[in-house]
Write a protein that binds this DNA or RNA. Structure first.
Lengths: 201, 201
DNA sequence: GCAGCTGTCTTGACAGTGTCAAGTTTTTCC
DNA sequence: GGAAAAACTTGACACTGTCAAGACAGCTGC
């Protein structure tokens, strides 16, 4: 096997790990996210994910151990992107409401990730990578909401803010809100957010 | 059929439908709730539910059509009890916060029902019985939260209150809150609820 | 009081599922 | 260039939801 072949491969799939498929791990996560987006997390089939990625039905197990392992990887990726989004919103505005809006926006734009992230029975909660990513999100959220109030072991203001935005996002993507809210979530969130007593007076 | 027969039957099995098993429909719903409480909604197996109720594996299909049908019945029952709980809280106190506390309490005490009620991909959303029960809950919730603000097509105050309590309940039962909150949810909800600007000034 | 019928449930079968053990192929390492 | 490791495939297993067909009980009409 010549060095050229490797080089060509590396140029074709410019990702961290490389092997036969190129980056099957990546491809499987993407396929899983796609499938969850279409049919929801409960109806997800490992074999369908494998077929979507063009590999045999047992290939996912090699990378993720089992179904929950694959979903754990999706959740970890979700928490990482989530932390990025929240941090970006805070850095850009320094405003709690903007972080809340980013929270809701993330849930809408990354619905598949979001649905898995907060469904503990589907994933391996003890996964170290998941923990790391989750901690990042928690920190980002705390920075946005907790900055208003002094830090504490458990911060009621942060919990209030979290409950509020999480409930709004969850009810929204589950289809519990009227069409006008779905059509313009940002405006609705701004209107509804006025009833939260945080970051003012 | 004579009127007397009905009366006697009604005393033995005081439920809507009756047949061989006594009330298999009821038993299957109970078994499903039990199973969901133990393993979560995703791992629920129709055959396991049937075994738990002591009937053949295909018996549930006769009463509920399919798996989603069984879960729909659970959700409908959940929404009915939910409406009862919220109405009772409002009638007893006339206080929005008490309705919120009842919301959280219901989620904790009826975790299996609650988890299914807000997971649309698991149930038949077009089921008329579900719709009826859901409307009852919506009305009860609106009575508790919407009473504060004037009625409208879409009431921001009601949506805010709903988002807040729903998020709190959801994050709590998903294990995202610190132990102190889990140990005394009522106290935590009262503390956190102060950050919601509803029903005051 | 009995034939027929409707509703309740069982049996058996089917394709599809997750997981595991064993094999095959490719890459890496020295 | 050969050995070892990694990446995947193949085949099997028990289990799942769903469907068609049949068995059984209870009620209806006479």
């Amino acid at each position: 096997m010549s060095f050229d072949t490797v080089k060509i491969r590396a140029r074709v799939v410019p990702v961290t790990d490389r092997y036969h498929h190129g980056d099957l791990r990546r491809a499987l996560i993407d396929a899983a996210v796609e499938a969850v987006g279409e049919t929801g997390p409960s109806a997800l089939s490992l074999r369908a994910v494998a077929k979507r990625a063009g590999v045999s039905h047992a290939a996912p197990a090699h990378h993720f151990g089992d179904k929950a392992g694959l979903l754990t990887a999706v959740a970890a990726e979700g928490f990482d992107r989530f932390a990025d989004a929240l941090d970006a919103a805070w850095d850009a505005t320094g405003d709690f409401k903007a972080v809340g809006a980013a929270y809701v926006r993330f849930a809408i734009d990354n619905r598949a990730h979001f649905e898995i992230m907060f469904r503990p029975e589907l994933i391996h909660e003890d996964d170290p990578d998941l923990h790391r990513a989750e901690a990042r999100s928690r920190a980002a959220l705390h920075r946005g909401a907790g900055a208003v109030e002094p830090e504490a072991d458990y911060n009621p203001a942060a919990l209030a803010a979290w409950s509020f935005v999480h409930g709004f996002a969850g009810l929204l993507i589950a289809g519990n809100f009227p069409q006008s809210v779905v059509d313009d979530p940002e405006a609705a969130f701004a209107a509804v957010g006025r009833y939260l007593r945080i970051g003012e007076d």
